[in-house]
């Protein structure tokens, strides 16, 4: 077997091993992420926390601010997405009601978050 072919074969073997190790065995772990990269259930729970707080404080500006930290999307869109997820996985009725309450508030909230 020509030397260059043998070299190329081992190069490819090493390449494959490196890819398997880097993609499968030890993939890049993301740290220092932002809330928008959270998994759907964590995102929904984040929005539920905002809804729980809003139900008590009735402060739409604070709620909108918390949601803006969470996602660049408009607050109402973030809540709508969370509500859809919550419905799909069967959140309890009181939690759905809180999310719906927050959604209504964010849909009518006029102010942009500073």
């Amino acid at each position: 077997m020509p030397r260059w072919i043998r070299f190329a074969l081992f190069l490819l073997l090493g390449l494959a091993a490196g890819l398997v190790y880097g993609w499968v065995i030890s993939p890049v772990e993301y740290v220092d992420t932002s809330p928008e990269h959270l998994r759907a259930d964590y995102r929904a729970d984040y929005v539920l926390m905002v809804a729980e707080t809003y139900a008590s404080s009735r402060d739409p500006q604070a709620a909108a601010r918390s949601l803006s930290l969470f996602s660049p999307q408009p607050p109402a869109a973030v809540v709508f997405e969370a509500l859809e997820y919550a419905r799909s996985v069967g959140y309890a009725s009181p939690d759905l009601a809180l999310l719906q309450f927050l959604l209504t508030a964010m849909q009518t909230y006029p102010g942009a978050v500073p």
Binding site: G14, G18, W23, P27, T33, H37, R39
Partner: peptide, 29 residues
């Protein structure tokens, strides 16, 4: 060749085209 390939593979896997670890938890914030 093997070592060169391995280094190339790791560079691609970790740097050039990392496979995103989807759905991080709040611990990664």
């Amino acid at each position: 060749g093997l070592l060169l390939g391995l280094a190339l593979g790791l560079w691609v896997a970790w740097g050039l085209a990392p496979r995103a670890q989807v759905d991080p938890s709040p611990a990664a914030l």
